[in-house]
Design a protein around this nucleic acid. Structure first.
Lengths: 339, 339
DNA sequence: GTTAGCAATCAAAAGTTAAGAGTGCTAAAA
DNA sequence: TTTTAGCACTCTTAACTTTTGATTGCTAAC
């Protein structure tokens, strides 16, 4: 294990590198971080830290740069918790206390707040719809030929869609639909509206196929479309020094644009934790030059969203994790106390 | 005015520059564009075109580059219409023929199709809500404490929102709300739900303020939130040679992120036309290095959306305008025939 | 165990040169 | 009068060289 002095030096190197994005020299460490040793001594220590794999060099005579092992150690052992100011807390509180009628809006607000406070790019997805139970399906007639279907789930998620018909729809038909769908689907998971169920409903009912078919189609569309991705603060990343190469910038934009990748990334986290993936720790090859930090938020014991930060490996983990912890707690606590 | 030969040469220069993004030399013109003159003759013509302001040079001994005046002349006089292939037509038809229940989805589809076919970045906004007339307001009870408000306008726009209460809402109250809001607001423009109207409604009704207040708040939110901006194909622009400088790329990202600017840009167009703004022709200073092409689409005689392309001044105007014309016609025709 | 001192290394900036693409102009040809 | 060959001149770009300065690793002394 690393002795205290090595830890202190490692921490200083990483802190400095996170700040400046420049390789850190022994001199800088002595001057800026008040180490009571000469640069030569520090150099010896740096050489050993490099040998044990916590640091790297960009070339023989350059300063030191943290390795992924270094970042990992930093995140696990060295991080200064509670790196969040009073103003930031106030700001977050203010944002999250806004009256919100739909959970999805809460996820959205949390996502943008997180980006604003950390200055990194954030992504989020809503709850996985297929896990949720149908609490109510409601059919509403709008005008003569427009039907709105509203589905409410047990977590309070509300999804709606509209269907237009070429012929008038009667109030009677609406009643029939309400009864049929509710009696068959209430309490079932959203994913239940699958092929067998579809056929069953079609066989069960007297209404003409032309009325029912588009309804089931649209409902399926809602369920499939589940993975709505929220993205916030993408442009902030362009100001980071690692993005001065067009190469990296383009790569990043492509990443964000690859929905599947983002969704996988968000889904890979463990439920009750803040998950940190540094560079190659990410499942996906394409994320090897980035770090990702994610968490899931809950309503009671149901997941209602996953929010993540994607940024350079040289991320301000301390701030990111502190802010995330705070937001995470606040989201979960508020939800709990509402019950 | 320009004689035929000058026109031909100007067109060749611009075509070539649009293709290559490199200054065009007299030699290239002779070789690639089958002009029956020597490069020296062409050089003389180029010099005159430059003197009249249609062309520029990047330095004394460089090839020629179109000026904004050159592009303008090109767009007004030289463009080869119908620059759209059969496959593209098929592709567009296919996309636009998808069954769509909401106008906004149509705008979305048209926006992404436009971006796919032209390979430029497209932006769009939906209809201006305040112009639209309220056809119906419907209140729907979801569960015991959740109220959904649905507003349908004369153009078929459907907006809905959800309000949660701390106490149960009765079916009776729903009826009252339905009656009140419909009798007061049906046929009125959406923007009518303003302060005086709000007070009037509050005074008119026996229901407690706690029930009505949030409803009006939410409805106002819907109306204000009107300007939902759709953005498609932003990353495509990053492959253009003019974006190899991080400077320009960052600038572009910032532009796209400035919603007001985008909205103004889209709104500035003339209703029934395809509008082309080249560089400094744009109202906004920040767009001076870009060209913008927009059009509005209609349902009957009501605007239901504005779609625009934003790209380099060296834009393939010919293709862009052809594709836009096609999509525009198709959107408007389809809507008309539906009636 | 610590540190001063110094050669060695290497990136980045500045400077130099050479190559080549393109123009404008002149004078001859059509 | 119009067109064109020819050529000097201009200026960018790429390649190569030099200089500068930051930083290290190592040695020997403290």
């Amino acid at each position: 294990m690393l002795d205290e002095r090595k830890k202190k030096i490692l921490q200083a190197v990483i802190d400095e590198y996170i700040n400046t994005a420049e390789p850190v020299s022994s001199n800088t460490l002595v001057e800026k971080y008040g180490l009571n040793y000469s640069s030569a001594t520090v150099r010896n220590e740096l050489a050993e830290l490099e040998k044990s794999g916590y640091l790297d060099k960009t070339h023989t005579s350059s300063g030191r740069v943290p390795s992924e092992k270094g970042y990992r150690f930093y995140v696990d052992e060295l991080i200064h918790d509670e790196d969040i100011s009073l103003e930031e807390i106030k700001y977050i509180q203010n944002k999250l206390d806004e009256k919100v009628n739909e959970i999805e809006d809460l996820t959205k607000i949390a996502t943008s707040t997180l980006s604003e406070v950390t200055h990194y790019t954030t992504v989020a997805i809503g709850p996985k719809t297929d896990m949720q139970l149908i609490e109510e399906i409601k059919f509403v007639l709008l005008g003569q030929r427009m039907l709105m279907v509203v589905i409410v789930t047990d977590t309070g998620l509300v999804k709606e869609t509209i269907i237009k018909y070429d012929e008038d729809v009667t109030q009677n038909q609406i009643e029939t639909l309400n009864n049929l769908f509710n009696s068959k689907l209430k309490g079932k998971p959203l994913s239940k509206i699958d092929k067998p169920m579809e056929e069953y409903i079609l066989s069960e009912i007297n209404e003409s196929i032309e009325v029912i078919k588009p309804i089931i189609e649209q409902i399926n569309k809602i369920i499939e479309q589940e993975e709505q991705l929220y993205l916030e603060g993408a442009k902030k990343s362009f100001d980071l020094p690692e993005f001065k190469s067009m190469e990296v910038a383009k790569n990043f934009v492509n990443l964000l644009d690859t929905k599947d990748l983002m969704v996988d990334m968000l889904n890979s986290g463990v439920a009750k934790d803040i998950n940190v993936y540094i560079g190659n720790e990410n499942d996906n090859e394409q994320l090897k030059d980035f770090s990702v930090v994610t968490f899931k938020h809950f309503a009671g014991d149901k997941e209602v969203g996953t929010i993540g930060i994607i940024g350079p490996k040289r991320m301000d983990y301390s701030k990111v994790i502190s802010v995330m912890k705070y937001i995470s707690n606040k989201l979960n606590k508020d939800k709990d106390s509402e019950k």
